[in-house]
């Protein structure tokens, strides 16, 4: 009966492991939703903390829910134009952010992939990011983006083909 009593805090180790595992992909997705990196970081933090708090048991939140929260918060943020414009202006001073891991050998490849992703329509980019780098199923992607699973699957196929065209020089 008392389901509320099962609500416990995540242990430090669980919390940190979960963050290490998922936060980079969450930030990648958030960076694609907003132009300013500070906003992306805020989105990730808000979404992660809110999603964990919603859990009634000491279990990590479903990833689809976290991504959905990021997306909704990004839409809210876009409506607050003044604040966004201000922070975007600030972000220009920080220089461009790297979406992908730019190790010494892979730097050029990462930048080209980021450029290609930037040129993709957002509907494809979202699905590709969630599928390839977050490892979500089409069902979870559907939940995160509030679209039917079949739409997610077809967007993924089209998006993958488009990205392949754009990255021919990277993945020859």
């Amino acid at each position: 009966m008392n389901s509320g009593s099962k609500h416990e805090l995540p242990a430090d180790s669980d919390w940190e492991q979960w963050l290490s595992r998922h936060a980079p992909a969450l930030l990648l997705f958030a960076r694609q939703q907003v132009k300013c990196d500070a906003d992306a970081q805020d989105l990730v933090q808000e979404a992660v903390v809110e999603s964990w708090r919603r859990q009634s048991q000491n279990a990590p939140p479903p990833l689809g829910l976290v991504y959905a929260t990021i997306r909704r918060r990004a839409i809210d943020l876009a409506r607050r134009n003044d604040r966004r414009a201000e922070r975007e202006a600030e972000s220009l001073l920080d220089g461009p952010q790297c979406w992908f891991d730019a190790g010494a050998e892979e730097r050029e490849r990462s930048l080209l992939l980021q450029k290609a992703m930037t040129n993709l329509p957002q509907i494809y980019r979202d699905v590709l990011t969630l599928k390839v780098w977050s490892g979500l199923t089409f069902g979870e992607i559907a939940e995160a983006l509030e679209i039917p699973p079949n739409t997610a699957a077809s967007r993924y196929r089209y998006g993958l083909m488009e990205l392949r065209k754009l990255t021919r020089e990277v993945f020859a």
Partner: peptide, 30 residues
């Protein structure tokens, strides 16, 4: 797909990771 996965997302900036770790839902709100 496996080619794409060879390029993983960028790691979190250290200050942001520290911020997230500190943002663990606290007992008061939970």
């Amino acid at each position: 797909e496996s080619e794409l996965r060879r390029t993983p997302p960028a790691p979190l900036p250290a200050h942001f990771m520290a911020r997230l770790q500190a943002a663990k839902p606290g007992p008061e709100r939970g």
